[in-house]
Amino acid sequence: TTVHLNGVTYTFPNPEEARKFVEKLAKTLNLKVEVHNGTYHIE
């Protein structure tokens, strides 16, 4: 599972880890999250 954040790409072997990371980040920084083909894009 891949996460794109400010031009940096993070790869998680575990989709659940990626989801938790994204949710925590989005909540902390009040960001918008979009998912395209299983890839998270955070703005």
Results as ranks from 00 to 15, higher is better:
residue 1 T to W: 08
residue 1 T to V: 09
residue 1 T to N: 09
residue 1 T to Q: 07
residue 1 T to R: 12
residue 1 T to A: 10
residue 1 T to F: 06
residue 1 T to S: 11
residue 2 T to V: 12
residue 2 T to L: 14
residue 2 T to P: 07
residue 2 T to C: 15
residue 2 T to A: 12
residue 3 V to L: 05
residue 3 V to Q: 00
residue 3 V to Y: 02
residue 3 V to K: 00
residue 4 H to L: 13
residue 4 H to Y: 14
residue 4 H to V: 14
residue 4 H to F: 13
residue 4 H to T: 08
residue 4 H to W: 14
residue 5 L to C: 14
residue 5 L to V: 13
residue 5 L to E: 02
residue 5 L to W: 15
residue 5 L to S: 03
residue 5 L to T: 03
residue 6 N to E: 07
residue 6 N to M: 13
residue 6 N to K: 08
residue 6 N to L: 12
residue 6 N to F: 15
residue 6 N to H: 09
residue 6 N to C: 15
residue 7 G to A: 05
residue 7 G to Q: 06
residue 7 G to K: 07
residue 7 G to M: 06
residue 7 G to V: 03
residue 7 G to H: 08
residue 7 G to I: 04
residue 8 V to A: 09
residue 8 V to D: 06
residue 9 T to W: 10
residue 9 T to Q: 11
residue 9 T to I: 14
residue 9 T to S: 10
residue 9 T to V: 14
residue 10 Y to M: 09
residue 10 Y to A: 01
residue 10 Y to L: 13
residue 10 Y to F: 12
residue 10 Y to W: 11
residue 10 Y to G: 00
residue 10 Y to C: 14
residue 10 Y to H: 05
residue 11 T to H: 11
residue 11 T to A: 09
residue 11 T to D: 06
residue 11 T to N: 09
residue 11 T to P: 04
residue 11 T to Y: 11
residue 11 T to V: 11
residue 11 T to E: 08
residue 11 T to F: 11
residue 12 F to K: 00
residue 12 F to V: 00
residue 12 F to Y: 03
residue 12 F to M: 02
residue 12 F to Q: 00
residue 12 F to S: 00
residue 12 F to I: 01
residue 13 P to S: 12
residue 13 P to W: 09
residue 13 P to Q: 10
residue 13 P to R: 13
residue 13 P to F: 09
residue 13 P to Y: 08
residue 13 P to E: 10
residue 14 N to S: 11
residue 14 N to R: 06
residue 14 N to C: 15
residue 14 N to W: 04
residue 14 N to K: 05
residue 14 N to Y: 06
residue 14 N to A: 06
residue 14 N to P: 00
residue 15 P to M: 10
residue 15 P to V: 08
residue 15 P to H: 11
residue 15 P to F: 11
residue 15 P to T: 08
residue 15 P to A: 12
residue 15 P to K: 08
residue 16 E to C: 15
residue 16 E to P: 04
residue 16 E to V: 10
residue 16 E to L: 10
residue 16 E to Y: 11
residue 16 E to G: 08
residue 16 E to M: 11
residue 16 E to H: 10
residue 16 E to R: 09
residue 17 E to N: 08
residue 17 E to Y: 10
residue 17 E to V: 11
residue 17 E to F: 10
residue 17 E to L: 14
residue 17 E to I: 12
residue 17 E to Q: 12
residue 17 E to S: 13
residue 18 A to H: 01
residue 18 A to S: 02
residue 18 A to Y: 02
residue 18 A to K: 01
residue 18 A to M: 04
residue 18 A to L: 04
residue 18 A to N: 00
residue 18 A to C: 14
residue 18 A to W: 03
residue 19 R to K: 09
residue 19 R to S: 05
residue 19 R to Q: 07
residue 19 R to M: 08
residue 19 R to N: 04
residue 19 R to E: 06
residue 19 R to W: 12
residue 20 K to P: 00
residue 20 K to V: 09
residue 20 K to C: 15
residue 20 K to N: 08
residue 20 K to I: 10
residue 21 F to E: 01
residue 21 F to S: 00
residue 21 F to I: 01
residue 21 F to K: 00
residue 22 V to I: 12
residue 22 V to A: 13
residue 22 V to D: 00
residue 22 V to M: 04
residue 22 V to T: 02
residue 22 V to L: 04
residue 22 V to E: 00
residue 22 V to R: 01
residue 23 E to A: 09
residue 23 E to S: 06
residue 23 E to L: 11
residue 23 E to C: 15
residue 23 E to D: 08
residue 23 E to I: 10
residue 23 E to M: 11
residue 23 E to Y: 12
residue 24 K to Y: 15
residue 24 K to Q: 12
residue 24 K to I: 13
residue 24 K to N: 12
residue 24 K to W: 15
residue 24 K to S: 11
residue 24 K to V: 13
residue 24 K to H: 13
residue 24 K to G: 08
residue 24 K to F: 15
residue 25 L to G: 00
residue 25 L to H: 02
residue 25 L to A: 03
residue 25 L to V: 06
residue 26 A to D: 05
residue 26 A to E: 07
residue 26 A to F: 06
residue 27 K to P: 03
residue 27 K to W: 09
residue 28 T to A: 09
residue 28 T to L: 14
residue 28 T to C: 15
residue 28 T to N: 11
residue 28 T to D: 11
residue 29 L to K: 05
residue 29 L to V: 05
residue 29 L to Y: 13
residue 29 L to T: 06
residue 29 L to E: 06
residue 29 L to N: 07
residue 30 N to P: 06
residue 30 N to S: 06
residue 30 N to I: 07
residue 30 N to F: 07
residue 30 N to M: 06
residue 30 N to T: 05
residue 31 L to W: 05
residue 31 L to A: 09
residue 31 L to Q: 02
residue 31 L to R: 02
residue 31 L to C: 14
residue 31 L to V: 13
residue 31 L to I: 14
residue 31 L to G: 04
residue 32 K to N: 05
residue 32 K to R: 11
residue 32 K to I: 09
residue 32 K to V: 07
residue 32 K to P: 03
residue 32 K to Y: 05
residue 33 V to E: 01
residue 33 V to H: 01
residue 33 V to A: 02
residue 33 V to C: 14
residue 33 V to R: 00
residue 33 V to P: 01
residue 33 V to F: 13
residue 33 V to M: 04
residue 33 V to Y: 08
residue 34 E to A: 08
residue 34 E to V: 14
residue 34 E to T: 15
residue 34 E to P: 01
residue 34 E to L: 10
residue 34 E to Y: 15
residue 34 E to S: 13
residue 34 E to M: 12
residue 34 E to I: 14
residue 35 V to A: 03
residue 35 V to H: 04
residue 35 V to N: 05
residue 36 H to N: 06
residue 36 H to Y: 10
residue 36 H to W: 09
residue 36 H to E: 05
residue 36 H to V: 14
residue 37 N to Y: 04
residue 37 N to Q: 05
residue 37 N to T: 02
residue 37 N to E: 07
residue 37 N to M: 04
residue 37 N to P: 02
residue 38 G to T: 02
residue 38 G to R: 01
residue 38 G to S: 03
residue 38 G to Q: 03
residue 38 G to M: 03
residue 38 G to W: 03
residue 39 T to I: 14
residue 39 T to Q: 14
residue 39 T to N: 15
residue 39 T to W: 06
residue 39 T to S: 14
residue 39 T to A: 14
residue 40 Y to M: 07
residue 40 Y to W: 13
residue 40 Y to F: 08
residue 40 Y to D: 03
residue 40 Y to N: 02
residue 40 Y to T: 04
residue 41 H to E: 06
residue 41 H to Y: 15
residue 41 H to C: 15
residue 41 H to M: 08
residue 41 H to A: 02
residue 41 H to G: 02
residue 42 I to S: 03
residue 42 I to Y: 03
residue 42 I to K: 02
residue 42 I to P: 03
residue 42 I to H: 02
residue 42 I to R: 01
residue 42 I to M: 06
residue 42 I to E: 03
residue 43 E to T: 15
residue 43 E to L: 14
residue 43 E to H: 12
residue 43 E to D: 07
